[in-house]
């Protein structure tokens, strides 16, 4: 940094107090999850609370026996499939819309406010509205039709806002340079714009998958006759009194973490590749 001595500058007392506060905050965020991860390894005779009655993977095995809980495998498959569909659609729709919003066009303000409204309108309202709409039209709600639409009202605004954040900081000189060199509009997007915004597109994909995978309220009236995983888990909270609930919690959280790690890894990979193949401007011939 510009001032190498800065690191040796003594920290004020407020730093240590705030650091302690931050530490407690992290404990508050992760402590409860850690508890159920530990408790999911309860012995076969263990209960819902401490102490641990031995250590086993009994409850994880229990999870995969069809009769133990509802249709866990089916719910997981549906949630993952829906998450992937929502992810792809969110990325395509919000990147396209983000490109469109860079130009002035009539109605852009209205569309922006609708997107913001989509975040603000309570989830249960969206759920009820879509449920009623399908009901009146006489179409059976299903996780891949009404459920998909309901999830998109939650993920698309995030995607669009991320696109706004990117293009507010986007240097248009790169595009102009591509155009001056004779690139077609599609080539400009494919070889110039997309590679530059790639890390943020991974971010949009992460939002798309995880928000859909965990969505509950918007799925409630739109999933149709088959449950997604959060609905299944919610059903379990009322009638399952064994640590199998924690095993399920541990498993879905692990899956979420895997997805987050994959996304972060993807961003790091893009950045490393960029550093390696980056511009040679100013290096000289």
């Amino acid at each position: 940094m510009a001032k190498p001595a800065k690191g040796r500058e003594p920290r004020p007392l407020s730093f240590y107090l705030l650091a302690a506060f931050f530490g407690l905050f992290v404990l508050f965020l992760y402590g409860p999850i850690a508890t159920i991860v530990i408790l999911s390894f309860q012995g076969p005779n263990g209960g819902l609370t401490f102490p641990m009655n031995g250590v086993s993977t009994h409850w994880f095995h229990n999870l995969f026996q069809q009769q133990a809980v509802g249709d866990f495998g089916g719910a997981l498959t549906r949630s993952v499939s829906l998450g992937l569909i929502v992810m792809v659609v969110t990325v395509l729709f919000s990147v396209a819309a983000g490109l469109g919003f860079r130009h002035r066009f009539r109605g852009s303000g209205v569309i922006f406010y609708i997107a913001v409204a989509s975040l603000i309108v309570p989830s249960i309202l969206v759920s009820l509205g879509i449920g009623l709409m399908f009901n009146i039209v006489g179409v059976e709600p299903n996780w891949f039709s009404s459920g998909l639409g309901a999830h998109l009202t939650w993920t698309l605004p995030f995607g669009l806002l991320i696109m706004f954040a990117i293009f507010n900081r986007f240097n248009r000189a790169y595009e102009e340079a591509a155009r001056d060199l004779g690139a077609t509009p599609w080539q400009t997007i494919r070889f110039v714009v997309l590679p530059i915004i790639a890390p943020s597109v991974i971010g949009i994909a992460l939002f798309g998958f995880t928000l859909s995978y965990d969505e509950f309220a918007r799925t409630l009236m739109t999933a149709g006759s088959f449950n997604t995983l959060p609905l299944e888990i919610y059903g379990m909270t009322t009638n399952v009194t064994t640590p199998v609930l924690y095993a399920l919690g541990t498993l879905t959280t692990a899956l979420s973490f895997l997805v987050i790690l994959a996304a972060l890894g993807g961003v790091l990979l893009v950045q490393r590749r960029r550093a390696r193949l980056g511009s040679d401007a100013g290096v000289g011939v």
């Binding site: 965020l29 409860p32 508890t35 401490f50 939002f207 995880t210 928000l211 959060p230 919690g249 979420s256």
Partner: peptide, 15 residues
């Protein structure tokens, strides 16, 4: 934690 399940995060307070 924003990207993990809300319901699981609620349940995790119970023990």
């Amino acid at each position: 934690p924003f990207w993990t399940s809300n319901i699981i995060r609620m349940i995790s307070w119970i023990p």
